[in-house]
Design a protein around this nucleic acid. Structure first.
Lengths: 145, 145
DNA sequence: CGAATCAGTAGCATTTTGCAACTTATTCGA
DNA sequence: TCGAATAAGTTGCAAAATGCTACTGATTCG
């Protein structure tokens, strides 16, 4: 997508999905957050076709999620998350937690997310200014204008 | 996707994306959260092609995000979110907040999310058991086994 | 130096998506 | 109650995206 032909220009959700709402982009971001740096490493972890990976890495760079820089040792290139890319952490986290709750059978094993001390990351629940839990029923979209 | 051929069976992020990681599913969910109930309404709001919408609605039902029931008045069918579908709220919210921060120029107008009293929904920041802010740098994936 | 590895490209087959026109059932209004 | 409008898809075909396999030119390692 050439940046300014948004599916729904007023909606931040739609703009975000125009940028990373495809089969692979968020998996690449996930792996970047988990330490992947090289073309081959992204390819191995995701299983994406090589030509598509080339395309996705270019788009992710063009849209400001990744940047390519030269590694300390050697001249080989590396991909690293930008601030905007790292800022997708809450998106990946909520997808993960949704998946844990609804895409695994009870008792079925899955990878988990832990903090620096090895403690599991707690469930992440949105709350309003008064501390009440927020959901689709208790919020609404306020349109422009 | 026929449910048990996951891209990456151990990863909840990948499973979630196998189910709703395409151009349109999350926009349909977004509109369902914002009150859309009928085929035509989804079509009008998203702009998706009608045959693709048919396909997506069927898949969302098959995967347990939506259910179809008969409206009170009249015999016409309606689509409604299931509990699993409503539980995608945090995903939509974090996508929205990412979009607000990174996909709009400073000062550019966009729709906003408000609570029952019309108060803007606050920024949603993941934190660990000790209350510290979590991000990609301070967490890691703990694999199965 | 030679072999292996990395980072892609290129060509082609398959799948997915999009568009426009058509169909069938409801519903609404005179 | 009839006729028109609207809802909810379906169908056929064209265009775009994706995937697979093989190939290429640098790096790097022993």
């Amino acid at each position: 997508m050439n940046v300014p032909d948004w599916t729904d220009p007023d909606c931040p959700v739609a703009r975000a999905l125009d940028l990373i709402g495809d089969r692979w982009s968020l998996l690449v971001i996930r792996d970047a957050m988990d330490g992947a740096r090289s073309f081959t490493e992204f390819q191995r972890r995701t299983g994406i076709a090589r030509n598509i990976l080339t395309d996705r890495l270019r788009k992710l760079i063009a849209h400001g999620f990744l940047e390519q820089h030269t590694a300390e040792s050697g001249r080989r290139k590396e991909y690293a998350l930008t601030e905007a890319g790292r800022d997708l952490f809450p998106v990946i986290l909520t997808l993960r937690q949704w998946g844990e709750r609804h895409a695994f059978a009870p008792g079925e094993a899955h990878s988990t997310l832990v903090d620096q001390h090895g403690e599991p990351v707690p469930e992440f629940v949105p709350s309003g200014v008064d501390g009440s839990v927020l959901g689709a029923e208790t919020t609404r979209v306020h349109k422009i204008g």
